[in-house]
């Protein structure tokens, strides 16, 4: 049998303790088989609601095996007898360990009939105390051995969607704030006859433009972006065959990427801030900003 993670055990022990009104330690001990299970002394109240029978396909033919209608109503007598829904009875009594007593059968199994006055609202979680009772214990004998440990998961709603929503709101607020205080640049109208000096590409290409000033354009402008920037980059998962994901076990890959980041960042920053007329080296705090996108951003005086 697969070991159940401790926190899951803890959680179900808490639920059991709450349902039975015992302490968590007691429930835990019971679940581990270290003490006798608590017996519920009071029969849970089962509300009988008039429920139209399931469609014909699901109900067994009345002639064949269906017990008398009386079997459907819960037996009021002994504590040990658990009322079992009629449709489930045949297939469950032998195998099932615990049967949930609920106000209604699960929605999926008995869809509401297509009656005009039928309630179109399905109450998914009735306000009735849901209790589990032990019928019999069947040794788990899986046909297949489970391949892996159960993964610890949480519900997307609300645990993922709420933080996501907050992130979206924060981003929206940040963008509106940025747009309110910083004006996007708009220079004079485009004029092919007047070349600004220097003419700079958008910031994300300025690393490339900086490299163009070192090497032949065939290399810096074409070979590096296509071969390194695209082909090598796309092929990276196929080159790096190390299956480890922990940083301590893939030091070379981490180093490689960090060097790339540092190099690209340095080139871009040089291109943006430290290049002036004639692509000559300038200091932004002395010679000013030679990048029009940043006109409204930084003022060195």
């Amino acid at each position: 049998m697969v070991d159940i993670p401790e926190h899951l055990l803890q959680r179900s022990a808490e639920a059991r303790a709450k349902a039975l009104g015992i302490s968590v330690e007691q429930a835990m001990a019971e679940m581990k088989g270290q003490s006798d299970p608590t017996i519920i002394s009071k029969e849970p109240e089962v509300k009988v609601i008039d429920e139209t029978p399931a469609p014909a396909a699901e109900t067994p033919a009345p002639a064949a095996e269906t017990p008398a209608p009386a079997a459907e109503t819960p037996a009021p007598a002994a504590e040990t007898v658990t009322p079992v829904k009629e449709e489930h009875a045949a297939e469950t009594t032998e195998k099932v360990a615990a049967v949930k007593i609920e106000e209604k059968a699960p929605v999926a199994k008995t869809p509401p009939p297509a009656k005009a006055d039928a309630p179109d609202e399905v109450d998914f979680a009735p306000d009735v105390k849901v209790t589990q009772r032990l019928l019999t214990v069947v040794k788990a004998k899986p046909i297949q051995k489970p391949a892996k440990e159960p993964i610890d998961k949480v519900n997307t709603w609300p645990h993922l969607m709420l933080p996501e929503f907050v992130a979206l709101m924060a981003m929206t607020a940040f963008l509106i704030f940025l747009s309110a205080i910083l004006q996007a640049p708009l220079l004079e109208e485009a004029n092919p006859n007047v070349t600004p000096n220097p003419a700079k590409a958008p910031w994300y290409f300025l690393g490339l433009q900086e490299m163009l000033s070192y090497w032949d354009p065939q290399i810096a402008g074409v070979m590096i972006p296509t071969v390194v920037g695209l082909i090598l980059w796309m092929a990276f998962p196929y080159i790096d065959r190390n299956p480890e994901t922990h940083p301590s076990k893939r030091k070379f890959a981490i180093m490689f990427y960090t060097f790339f980041l540092a190099g690209a960042g340095t080139l871009t920053i040089i291109g943006v801030l430290f290049r002036g007329p004639g692509w000559n080296w300038v200091y932004p705090w002395i010679d000013g900003i030679w990048f029009d996108d940043l006109l409204d951003w930084i003022h060195f005086e």
């Binding site: 640049p185 708009l186 220079l187 004079e188 109208e189 485009a190 004029n191 092919p192 007047v194 070349t195 600004p196 003419a199 700079k200 590409a201 958008p202 290409f205 490339l208 433009q209 163009l212 354009p217 065939q218 402008g221 074409v222 029009d292 996108d293």
Partner: peptide
């Protein structure tokens, strides 16, 4: 999108970028 405002910044940034494409073998 950088070209669309049609100002000096736009046209020359795109000229620089487009000229790079001209170096394709």
């Amino acid at each position: 999108g950088y070209l669309l405002p049609w100002d000096q910044l736009a046209i020359w940034a795109v000229t620089v970028g487009g000229n790079m494409a001209g170096y394709v073998p």
